[in-house]
Amino acid sequence: MIRPDAPVLLEIRDLHARVEAKAILKGVNLTIRAGEIHAVMGRNGSGKSTLSKVLAGHPSYTVTGGSVTYRGENLLELDPEIRARAGVFLGFQYPVEIPGVSNLEFLRVSTNARRVHRGEAELDTFEFEDLVRERLQVVQMDPAFLERSVNEGFSGGEKKRNEILQMALLEPLVAILDETDSGLDIDALRIVAGGVNHLATPDTATLLITHYQRLLDAITPDYVHVMAAGRILRTGGKELALELEQRGYDWVDAELAALEGADADRQPAEVA
């Protein structure tokens, strides 16, 4: 839902980042307002996943330039756990397994960390059980998964549902979902997309990172961004995704080549 007067939640300006010595993000600009759903599309290696990791604060990624402002605050200064408590959520493409740590306990500690940050009282085990059972319905998940270790032995679809369950409990203001559709069959995709739609409100925003149109059939984006070589190359409405679906990414390559040519032309001039 686009409302020009809605408050800006996330403002990314000329963001550069590298992993080890390799520059991945080369000047990303993106403004996300409350109520909006953004989709970032692009080929493998275009920097989509890196963008999501940088926003969540993964220690392997180093920001080398630019800024990210979250509700007026410098997001890049915050430790990952503080970002999460403040309402930035990353749904992982490959959620890791954590043997020995009970899923229920993990969800409770995590939910309480967010609640304390918001000035709410911590939930005791009984109160939390009530809450989690209610939120399980969002993703139609079997309560048996609460008793297991975090993601351990979960199928791909179960892991993704567990991600959306966490999102339902943490009630983020900005939810970044990294390839949430990958590895899902049609039914699981429908459930996960239904969960995301259910959780989207006029006060929150969603950033979907995806390869495929099929997720966008289930979750209608307000904006579609095409990423290539670490930048957002083009921004449009939901029809841009359809265009990508029909035309493929070849035209992106052509546009990128033209742009890089322009860069090359411009740079010596700047030096001079």
């Binding site: 969540a56 604060g57 993964h58 990952p80 756990e81 740590v101 993990f106 967010r114 940050h117």
Partner: peptide
């Protein structure tokens, strides 16, 4: 990082995993 990205502090994340 997974635990941290869910609001759980670094030291607490380690001790959760160890006590698990």
């Amino acid at each position: 990082f997974y635990l941290q990205s869910r609001g759980i502090g670094f030291e607490e994340a380690v001790s959760m995993m160890v006590s698990g």
